[in-house]
Nucleic acid binder design. Sequence first.
DNA 1: CTGAAAGCGCTAACAA
DNA 2: TTGTTAGCGCTTTCAG
Lengths: 345, 345
Amino acid sequence: METSAGSTNKRSAVTMHDVAAHVGVSIATVSRALSGNRPMSQELRDQVLAAADKLGYRVNLLGRALRLQRTFSLGLVVPDLENPFFSALAQQVSRSFSKSNIDVFIYSADNDIKLEHRAIQSFLGRQVDGLVLIPCHEIDSQANVLLADSSVITIQLDRLVRSPQTRYVGCDNRHGMKLVVEHLHRDVDLNRQPPIFVGARATSSSAHERLDAFARSLPNAKRLLGSFSFEWGQQAASDLIDQGVTAGSIVTAADVIALGVIAGVQARGYRIPEDFRVIGFDDIGVSFLAHPALTSVRQPVDQMTNTIVDIVLGDIAGHGVAPRNARRVFKPDLMIRESSPSSPL
Amino acid sequence: METSAGSTNKRSAVTMHDVAAHVGVSIATVSRALSGNRPMSQELRDQVLAAADKLGYRVNLLGRALRLQRTFSLGLVVPDLENPFFSALAQQVSRSFSKSNIDVFIYSADNDIKLEHRAIQSFLGRQVDGLVLIPCHEIDSQANVLLADSSVITIQLDRLVRSPQTRYVGCDNRHGMKLVVEHLHRDVDLNRQPPIFVGARATSSSAHERLDAFARSLPNAKRLLGSFSFEWGQQAASDLIDQGVTAGSIVTAADVIALGVIAGVQARGYRIPEDFRVIGFDDIGVSFLAHPALTSVRQPVDQMTNTIVDIVLGDIAGHGVAPRNARRVFKPDLMIRESSPSSPL
DNA sequence: CTGAAAGCGCTAACAA
DNA sequence: TTGTTAGCGCTTTCAG
């Protein structure tokens, strides 16, 4: 009576031995019948298949993997699923692999370097065929990335740890920021709406590069640095207005920040884009929530994730893979919308 | 030269045999030293540990799992990670299990019943210790849920497939809607701002229950049904205004819809809450993006996910688990904010 | 075309 | 305390 009440899950699944016994053949025959890539008599195969179906046989992928030294799986470690950009990326990576025979498993590190380590250890221990990492931190994640890379093909996505010898797929952040700056010079009266940068502290490569590119182009512009969050954008807007700023072209390091800025600006009664222009970065995830619609740098996510598929499948097939230090960086586009239109105001 | 260029990942990992040989003991000793739960001499243990460390040994969890018939893993299948409510749920499930020794792996079904099936097959084949499912579809997912439930402890989260005998953890949608209706009766001039429901077609139990509860309480109210998306909310707002509606209390079936309604209403120049009140459901994910802040029914997500942990750990430990048909439903709260304040306008 | 047997890496029962 | 061995479920030589 101490056993589970009402639970009748069959933990001891039916194995190939059961199927073999049922038909009266060897397990080798069952294996061949199921895999289908060895010559054998059609009627025996049909018999085996029927028996497998009848008994409810399901292959134990652990046994197969142990024998094959392949798991047909990929681990994806993301810093935080509540960040809509990362969840959108995760979704897109999954979707790109769904056309292949590789299963993508997502692990959220919850912005915790220890959990990130645990995720990688777990994936490696489970012998994934590849690993895609969006590192939590530009410095602290380095050891984690190297650990992964030493055991299995690993690709960093979006963010890049300081380390020369690891594969990376991402977008050209500097180019994206260049597009933004060109837009400002071309379409904006910068005397009336001077540029202001609301970014994130440089704890990740994307924060780093976007800030850097902006600062080089517009070294005299005001810069505020916080985190990749809505709250920070909101607060930055509030701070600016408290400082007496009543107009400007606010360039942000991410759409989530831009959404916060918009909310903060509007809450204080200013208009977008008449008083403040707002420009985002990423153009993915929830950026469609912005009102007015957000001018933003669109990352070429499809290209990025398809490239990852190519690299991983290439490595598995074993033919001339991207070298270990390959950096595949794609050029983003600027999507001009209402929050910073292409005409001076 | 046809081998991978520059790739030197060691696919053949170091095993217990290597460690054993290095120290000059049997693999059993290595196993005992590493697991640490068998009596053995301290110095030998230290020796083994040192060797394991030196050689870069990492346990192969496939081998262990095959032997133990346990994987210390849980599969979580979500319909769609781009829906911020589901990604927030996934994050919270992960977080709740991070305190345990169970790893949570997330699989996105991309709202596709075939992919959902593949995810479940993959998890079952990989012998997960448990499965948490947010089914894609109230009807079509039934076979998938039953498949899962027949092999391993499985818990449906948030959405419930039509089937009597499966475990479920969720929130009391009818009670949540009741709180909303009470709020309307108590705080709103319903002659000036009559109730309107903007929901989702009843293809999932949550859509179903929320609609049903609203319709029973306010049978004469206008009802519009679409999907769980921002776009639908936006369009519904637009449609209403096109129909000549200029004021109302818009009750939605989800925050994502509410955000769309807010955008749609504001785009047409109406004010919230003076013209239209807007009330959400879930209060999780990106609902903080709303401006004005969104009055919403808050799901008790912590309670829900902690309950899942209890059920799963209980099942694994084998002591008197929740029966197979257990339904654990938690009462939500109404969070009253600016989009529908507690005073008539 | 089919079967016997080895072995992927691990743990635990049994011996010593 | 330590070693030997069986076996978890599978695929694949190697014989027949």
